[in-house]
Amino acid sequence: MTENMLEVTGLGHVYRAKEQTHTAFGDISFAVDRGEIVCIVGPSGCGKSTLLRCLSGLLRPTSGTVSLHGTEVTEVPDELAMVFQDYSRSLFPWRTVAGNIEFPLRGRELSKAQRRERVEEALSWVGLSGAATKYPWQLSGGMQQRVAIARALAYRPMLMLMDEPFASVDAQTRAELEDLVLQVRAEHEMTVLLVTHDVDESVYLGDRVLVLSKSPASVVETLSVDLPAPRDQIGTRGAEEFVRLRTEVAQRIRNTAPTS
């Protein structure tokens, strides 16, 4: 079932503002197989968020190509959903939880009953069935991010892009949400590309970890994570192999960071 789903070739993006130019990343190439969870880590400021924006079609890269199923991405593809770090700014405060999840579905050819069914289903996947009529700002941060994940799931994407999705929640919630991603992948054959600055998280979640260099970034290392499934917050994180991998990733990041 391995099949190149996403292929990134020589991707680069340069921001131009008047006389200044800033190269977010220079030359990034990698591929993601169907059903994989690939984590991208790198030093802060290496353009990870810009990279995700280019992959999602929200931003046109200045060089290189992104292809999804062999088709070049020039606008936001149909099979893709995104989860942003800042849930409070990506949920619509004037819509209820159910309304937020349903909003993207209205562009799809679904009847009202089908949309409602998907909303209910997605809420039960993330354990928020009771919160359908609440407003996002009535929920805790972790619950809000669950809503954002439910919205992405209800959309039934083949590829889910996550931009530091757990950076703004507390440690306990973070562990729960990490396991939610693993569970979702297992149950829905989803492909996930997740950007994080947390080394442990990248190893815990990833089938592969891509390490980016400092800006202008490129992929300096690809590590396969051979940890047994299902992963477990205590068992996996205590395993010798986990510790070896996290050390390796951390070392690669340190070597790439600016010497100061």
Partner: peptide, 29 residues
């Protein structure tokens, strides 16, 4: 209007018209 909200709508391929009625107008209300 929060660019993140607009990006969220765009990432779900919400059309320009529905971004106006569903994101911009409620934001500015």
């Amino acid at each position: 209007v929060d660019p993140q909200l607009v990006d969220t709508a765009r990432s779900f391929r919400v059309s320009r018209l529905r971004r106006l009625t569903g994101v911009t107008l409620p934001s500015i209300a």
